[in-house]
Design a binder for these strands. Structure first.
Length: 279
DNA sequence: CTCTATACCGAATTAGGGAT
DNA sequence: ATCCCTAATTCGGTATAGAG
């Protein structure tokens, strides 16, 4: 849940090396997220996070089955790609390796769920490998997720489900917006609102506010966020703001009540677990 | 049938500079 | 603040092929 709304990932498809330095007062404490990129690989992106989401869902599934869980993962590239709704073409294989490099090379320092106030940093994954056989064919990938992430996934109340159609969202800002909406609108139908400036700050985007606002308007126009309806409005102070509500809670005659279909996902059939191997 | 692997191409997306 | 444009990159779908 913490990863849902705070800026932890680059929203850009291009290489981002500019760090995210996010801080906000939350009562008496200050919430801080600092993300620095390895200059060679760039910052981990919101698409790279799909691998972490996959890993988290594997852990949760193992937990509900009473199977022991682990921070270590081993999975065939094909299975991973199918699970996160990606094409299985050759270029995708390379992209997964690039993603692992970025996940490894990106350093996160945050006050969220950290004991004490001393600075502490971690990478999304601790180690990874993409072994091949003698003929150079991939034998899948192996990686170990950060303990910070692992501990969070183990705690029931810290985990929020994500609609599978999330993987079909093509825009970085669009994906990030779904996370915000899901986090805040998850438990209530009434909806929530944020000003454009608040959203811009929360996103960690390097885009200028005006251009960011333009992009958000496009996302609103498309109305593709699974399960939610977006609306722009003006605050009393005249500021542009975004409100969102759960589609299921809307009146049946509301235009947003009928769910909008997203391009069909190529979703792999559920396989036996076994991806979360005990340490 | 699953999985690994490659190639192609138009559409979409974002960063960033500059003009209005 | 917004719009316009370009460069770089990814997306999404298709086609192809071979090993097991």
């Amino acid at each position: 849940m913490e990863m849902m709304e705070r800026p932890f990932f680059s929203l850009s498809k291009g290489k981002r090396t500019e760090p995210i330095d996010y801080r906000v007062r939350n009562g008496t404490t200050e919430v801080r997220v600092r993300v620095t990129a390895n200059s060679e690989t760039g910052m981990a992106t919101i698409w790279d996070a799909d691998i972490l989401i996959w890993a988290a869902s594997q852990i949760r599934e193992a937990m509900t089955r009473g199977v022991p869980t682990s921070r270590r993962f081993r999975v065939s590239l094909y299975e991973l790609l199918r699970a996160i709704g990606r094409p299985t073409g050759g270029a995708e294989y390379g992209r997964i390796v690039e993603a692992l490099r970025r996940l490894k090379g990106t350093v996160i320092e945050t006050t969220i769920r950290q004991k004490g106030t001393r600075p502490q940093g971690f990478g999304w994954i601790e180690e990874w490998s993409a072994p091949t056989d003698e003929e150079g064919r991939s034998l899948g990938i192996e990686f170990t997720i950060a303990d910070w992430l692992y501990q969070g996934v183990l705690e029931d109340k810290l985990v929020l489900s994500i609609d599978r159609e999330y993987f079909a969202l093509t825009g970085g800002i669009e994906r990030w917006l779904y996370r915000v909406v899901r986090k805040h609108g998850g438990h209530q139908g009434g909806g929530w609102g944020f000003t454009m400036a608040q959203l811009h700050h929360k996103s960690g985007s390097t885009r200028r506010l005006a251009d960011f606002a333009k992009d958000v308007r496009k996302v609103v126009e498309r109305q593709r966020l699974p399960g939610y309806w977006l609306e722009l409005y003006r605050t009393e102070g005249g500021e542009e703001a975004l409100r969102f509500s759960a589609r299921a809670m809307l009146p049946t005659n509301h235009p947003g009540y009928a769910p909008k279909r997203l391009p069909r996902l190529r979703v792999a059939a559920r396989r036996e677990p076994g991806a979360a191997v005990p340490e």
